[in-house]
């Protein structure tokens, strides 16, 4: 479904053909759930929040600005909803931090980079957990860019940040991840 088709679907939904909205839910359910899942770190919460996002998007669809893509609009709602959720859950997140002993990487000190010696599968799992330790403003951009594969430009629109700030945060977030994986934090 390209941008024009999406606009047609949105028009139809706004005219009362609600069933057409299903195409948009179908198309974006996976990226939205994965984005929220990597943001909140819990599958049940992620699916529940994702439902809220799609319903909120339907209810306020009349306010959709056609100069953006639908995905930008949807991820805007998703980031706002998720940040709001994380703010309310902050206490619980802090108390989870005790569980991260596992992050001390098991590498041999042969002088090479510790990242090289981690086997591939283990690195991915550790990385998934390490993302959870990033401050939310860094987690947001790194997940949007690398997990949901959204361009720098679109992330800037979603987050209302200047392009330079988006790139800066993504760059810094990767450095933080490296440090977390090396057990330096």
């Amino acid at each position: 479904m390209d941008v024009t088709e999406e606009l047609q679907v949105i028009d139809a939904v706004l005219k009362g053909d609600v069933d057409r909205y299903e195409a948009l839910v179908n198309r974006y359910q996976k990226p939205i759930i994965n984005f929220i899942f990597r943001m909140v770190g819990n599958y049940e919460d992620a699916t529940e929040l994702a439902q809220d996002v799609f319903i909120k998007s339907y209810v306020s669809l009349a306010g959709f600005n056609r100069q953006y893509r639908f995905s930008t609009w949807l991820f805007r709602i998703a980031t706002n909803r998720t940040i709001d959720f994380l703010r309310k859950r902050k206490v619980a997140v802090v108390s989870m931090e005790g569980d991260y002993e596992d992050y001390t990487p098991q590498y041999k000190s042969n002088g090479s980079s510790p990242l090289e010696t981690l086997e591939d599968g283990r690195l991915k799992t550790l990385l998934g957990d390490a993302i959870q330790q990033l401050p939310s403003e860094y987690r947001e951009v790194i997940v949007l860019y690398h997990v949901t594969e959204i361009s720098y430009e679109e992330i800037a629109e979603i987050t209302d940040l200047p392009l330079g700030t988006v790139k800066n945060r993504i760059f810094r977030a990767r450095k933080m991840l490296k440090k977390i994986l090396e057990g330096e934090i």
Binding site: I33, N34, Y43, K124, R174
Partner: peptide, 11 residues
């Protein structure tokens, strides 16, 4: 890191 990030398991 970038390569590993792109391969982080999806749900």
């Amino acid at each position: 890191i970038t390569e590993a990030l792109c391969d982080v398991p999806k749900v």
